[in-house]
Simulated assay, not measured.
Amino acid sequence: MPSRPTPTIFRALLLAAGLAATAASAAAQSPTGGTLPPVDDLVRYFDTIVFGSEMGPAYASTVIAKWPGDTLTVSLEQRATPEHLGFVSAHLAALGRLTGKKFSGTKTPESAAIRVLFLRRNEMAAIGGPNVDPQAIREAAAAGGCYFLSWKQPESRIVKAIVVVNVERDPALINSCLLEELTQSLGLPNDSDAMRPSIFSDRDHLSELSPHDAILVRTLYDPRMKAGLPRAAALGVARTVISELAGSARSSTSHGRGG
Rank of each mutant, 00 (worst) to 15 (best):
D213F: 01
V74H: 03
A141T: 03
I215F: 01
T240N: 09
A23N: 09
R239N: 12
L209T: 04
E168R: 03
T99R: 01
S176R: 05
R4Y: 10
L186M: 09
S254W: 08
M55W: 15
E180Y: 03
G145N: 10
A233P: 05
S53V: 06
D133P: 07
M1E: 06
V237A: 09
D213N: 07
D191G: 05
V241C: 03
D41W: 06
G69W: 02
L92D: 04
S210H: 02
L186K: 01
I49V: 13
R44L: 09
R196N: 13
H91K: 12
F46W: 07
K226G: 08
R257I: 12
A20T: 12
G256D: 15
G56P: 10
T8Q: 14
H205K: 14
S111N: 11
V132E: 14
V43N: 00
A90E: 11
Q184G: 05
K107P: 13
D41M: 08
K160W: 08
R257P: 08
Q184S: 06
R218D: 05
A172S: 14
T35A: 12
A194C: 08
F46E: 01
I137K: 01
R138W: 01
C146M: 04
R203N: 15
A141Q: 00
I158H: 06
A112L: 06
T240H: 10
A58L: 11
D70C: 00
R203K: 15
G56M: 11
V164P: 00
E208L: 03
S254A: 12
A21Q: 15
S25A: 14
E110K: 12
S192L: 09
P189I: 03
G86W: 03
S207Q: 15
E139I: 14
T62N: 11
A214D: 01
A143M: 14
L173K: 15
H255D: 13
M225W: 05
L179T: 02
R97W: 00
T99N: 02
D202H: 14
L206P: 05
A21G: 10
E181A: 02
L220K: 05
S176T: 14
V159S: 13
P109K: 05
S61C: 09
T108D: 13
K226F: 09
A58S: 13
E181Q: 13
I137A: 08
P230I: 08
A142G: 08
A12D: 07
G187E: 00
T35W: 07
Y59M: 14
R97Q: 09
W151N: 11
S210Q: 02
L178R: 00
G258M: 11
G187N: 03
P130R: 10
N175H: 15
L178G: 02
